[in-house]
Design a protein around this nucleic acid. Structure first.
Lengths: 218, 218, 218, 218
DNA sequence: CATGAATGAGGTTTCATTCAT
DNA sequence: AATGAATGAAACCTCATTCAT
């Protein structure tokens, strides 16, 4: 599609992009950022492309130069969120589970809740998109699978034949946490204080994953 | 106003309705049933009122005579699903948990999966509506709370002060099951065989709810 | 249309009407009165039959039992207004013109303004109907012609051959007064104080109808 | 933004418009002209936007690109009519009144009648709109006020303190003429031959405005 | 590359009107 | 005589999308 990129683009960090290319990326960026704001304000279904282009101060037709449709921008917005999360989050979870102590687990879960609190604005849109758009749901599953890949420390503790079941369990617990956070933090349809919530979840994980309780003794 | 109904009308329960009333209810019923079909086919967001009235072979204006908008019919469709579920399902769950044996629990969860399999067609719409419509989400929460009310047998086993936490745990496990079923049975984004799924969930519940494992009697 | 009115109806005042007939008239009356209120509130075009039946607390279908359409009720409402006006108003005008003095004329015009002020609420609807409905416009012309019939005193002063032109002139002046009142009193698009308005019109009539000015001497 | 227009664009009056602009104006023009035809055929209230776009062979959405609603196009149509009238008409009236002779006045009024005859088709819509839409009524008042501004010749004949009253009188006579023309020429609810009408009006104006009758010289 | 203009396809809603009761 | 239910037509409006510039 690009005809004359004078040299290799997208390798390291600060390659020289042609002026055009740079403008193009900037516009794309503007659209993505505007889209995020719009999705936060209006959710997924209610957000129209008109809303997005208006927010980005870009012509509606320009949008179609960069994205095929609403789902496409949404995926880009969502990808950013996931990128931000994935690296740290999962690795941390592995550490916490490997340590296996209540304190470690609590730390991890506390961070998870914090992440939810930060992202609260965008999450209704994400849930909506996930419920209505199979493609988005598939991405979410990918993420759960990435998680599986990161659990090397934790899974290493178990004999080969148990690992699949263990991995699945953790995935289920994460899924449950997701739901819970969504209903309590985002939708507020479930009303529990943060501390109580944290205690509850922590206890539940300890039992469900059969981790040693409380005092990690000698 | 009614001149001639020679004897008591409208007392007990399944009384003679006036002809008018009956026709009216039939039309309403047709709309609700058609709506269900449409929601099953197209999900919530993509379903238009035109689709529904076309399916019900009823004039568009007639729809508005019975319902204020799409959300209103949806609520009626959803209410039917819940009614169908609630009575049996929760009571059964209470029994299973009270028995506390793996076999009993497995039986219950098997029934739950069966329910999900039956309802699979409508569930995408339900999830969509729940994600985008706070009111529908609130109904879902109500249902979880009804559940709590039915757990008399199970909760009775615990001392007063533990009950709240226990109740919450069960609710969380149900929530998790919901999610899991949705992703595996409905969206099929998670691929697990039914047996494996059942084993997994059963084990997880036993641990999470700290029920006695396997053979109880002997 | 009436099958069994036991005796002549509509002659004097208190003929015995059959019960049905009486109910019928009452309903009709309710509709007309409600219609008037609605026309006053919303004008002619914006008033819907639904508005009227809602205001009359009568079923929409009932409306069609009494009137063919909106124009039909409007005509009945309008007829009442005209009835109320015609008798006094025109006779008075004849007297004023016959007297021919400024004082007399001023009295008449003052009453005319008062009438406009009273009717202000309904007039926008009347004007609207008159502009869009030829039939209503025809009624208005009828009224102007009735006026002509009442001017016996005034026209009697002139020789036979002049009378037509004189009559026409008066009609034109009334028409002008109508317009003026509508713009000033009802639409308030023309802003003049009442006194100034009265002076102006009075002077204009004196000139236009060539009446003797001011002091009616000897 | 325009890079290459080598020399001055858009200065004087009938400049080169960009191709885009020109196309846009053409479309707008088509809509306005079609609207006029539709208003002539169906009046104001009965004319729908669908009628207009069908007549213009333009998509309904295109309409909304150019106008906010029916009232907006109507105002543009009406503005054209007024533009066409204003310049000549009022100036002519001033001349006629300044001359003050019956012949001159008759000439003016004859032209006025001719204007009404030309515009007859659109006038029902105009009256309708004026009756139901206060904004349109306000424009009509503006026009009467413009008239006032043009009467320099005529008003100059009177002492300062009389001018206001004189101006108002002329305005009233114009208003009356409007009404009369509407009822006779457009609605034909008043039936008078053109000559008789002209005589009548002419005489009436002479008296009302106290102009010298008939023979001017001597 | 970006844009203004135009389109077509729907969607929701409101009305006037007619039947069967 | 009065009504509740149903209808069909149409109105208005909004969106996603595509051209020509």
């Amino acid at each position: 599609m690009r005809l004359m990129p004078p040299s290799s683009a997208d390798e390291p960090a600060a390659v020289l992009l042609s002026v055009r290319e740079e403008q193009r990326l900037m516009t794309r960026r503007r659209i993505v950022q505007a889209a995020r704001r719009v999705f936060e304000d209006r959710g997924y279904g209610q957000a129209s492309i008109g809303d997005i282009t208006k927010a980005a101060k870009v012509n509606r037709a320009t949008f179609y130069l960069h994205f095929a449709n609403k789902a496409a921008v949404f995926n880009e917005v969502y990808a950013e969120v996931r990128q931000h999360q994935t690296g740290r989050y999962w690795a941390m979870l592995d550490e916490g589970l490997t340590a296996g102590t209540e304190a470690a687990l609590r730390g991890v879960l506390d961070r998870a809740l914090a992440w939810w609190e930060e992202q609260a604005a965008l999450l209704p849109a994400i849930h909506e998109a996930m419920a209505s758009d199979l493609e988005v749901a598939a991405r979410w599953k990918d993420q759960l699978d990435e998680l599986a890949g990161e659990l090397r420390g934790y899974l290493g503790q178990f004999p080969e034949e148990e690992r699949d079941a263990r991995r699945l369990r953790v995935q289920l617990m994460v899924m449950q946490l997701d739901q819970l956070c969504f209903r309590t933090i985002v939708q507020k349809v479930f009303v529990i204080e943060r501390d109580v919530l944290l205690d509850l979840v922590c206890d539940l994980w300890l039992d469900s994953l059969q981790l040693r309780r409380g005092s990690d003794p000698s």
